[in-house]
């Protein structure tokens, strides 16, 4: 137990040091522009298709479930509002963050852990090229740049998914106009922004956890695998626990 607590404190401490050291290199982002763009491509563009597909179906299922529950009570006009708010404030940011942890975070941890185990990180240090500048800072900034884009696209596609279900599922039968009217009457700019703020925090932490776990890997191939698992699990726990507190703080 004492060992586990020490390990957790070690992780938190090293992540704090890593974030300060990495963000201190932010002014050097223009010197690392290609790496920043490459990471934006990886985090944003390559994650977009899966975000689009999942958002569509999450919006659809949400409309289906709320439609099923509300249609007998005559509350089908609220479906747009419920889907709109849920997607904007909760589901889109959390879903994007979870996808980021599974798809990008795991890849980052595997790459950095492999670099650590095979002395590539040590080679960078002896070359006086700080890994925080070359490997961590561009990834953190790319996450900050791409999370709002992914979240807003997730929102819009989720809303459209809900609209399609409302229109074409016969027992709901709410027209697209009524659905979006309901959505617009409730969802405000602040709701969307609150979701984006959440996504920014989650995205930043997911990438930080992924980098920190990768750079702290010791051992061989087996430890690389363990680090990837650990990074994803810690990211998911962090997202879901923080979600409550950030949501509460933004209310």
């Amino acid at each position: 137990m004492k060992k586990q607590v020490t390990e957790i404190l070690d992780d938190v401490g090293s992540a704090a040091v890593l974030v300060f050291r990495s963000m201190a290199y932010t002014p050097k982002v223009f010197g690392n522009w290609n790496r920043f763009i490459e990471q934006c491509h990886l985090i944003g563009y390559t994650t977009l298709p899966i975000v689009a597909i999942l958002s569509f179906f999450i919006g659809s299922v949400l409309a289906l479930q709320t439609g099923y529950a509300l249609v007998n009570l005559g509350g089908e006009t609220f479906i747009g509002a419920i889907v709109g708010l849920s997607m904007a404030r909760e589901l889109a940011p959390v879903m994007v963050a979870i996808l980021l942890a599974g798809r990008v975070g795991s890849a980052i941890t595997a790459e950095l852990a492999s670099m650590k185990v095979y002395n590539e990180i040590d080679a960078l240090v002896t070359m006086n090229i700080p890994p925080e500048r070359m490997l961590v800072m561009p990834r953190l900034l790319a996450a900050l740049a791409m999370m709002p884009v992914l979240t807003i696209i997730g929102n819009v596609i989720g809303w459209i998914g809900g609209a399609v279900v409302c229109q074409y599922v016969t027992f709901i039968g709410v027209s697209t106009e009524v659905y979006f009217q309901s959505l617009k009457s409730v969802v405000t700019f602040k709701d969307v922004m609150d979701g984006v703020i959440k996504a920014e925090i989650f995205g930043f932490l997911v990438i930080l956890i992924a980098c920190n776990t990768g750079l702290r890997t010791k051992g061989g191939p087996r430890e690389i695998g363990s680090s990837v698992t650990r990074a994803v699990v810690v990211s998911l726990i962090t997202i879901l626990v923080l979600d409550y507190f950030i949501t509460r703080a933004l209310m």
Partner: peptide, 29 residues
């Protein structure tokens, strides 16, 4: 102090070509 360490297993950057491995230091600095 400018120092270079030649690692036992090479520690080459596996995601870069040989040329890019060599060019990294002068390019970065």
């Amino acid at each position: 102090v400018h120092m270079a360490l030649v690692f036992q297993a090479g520690a080459l950057f596996n995601s870069m070509t040989v040329f890019d491995n060599l060019a990294l230091y002068p390019t970065e600095h």
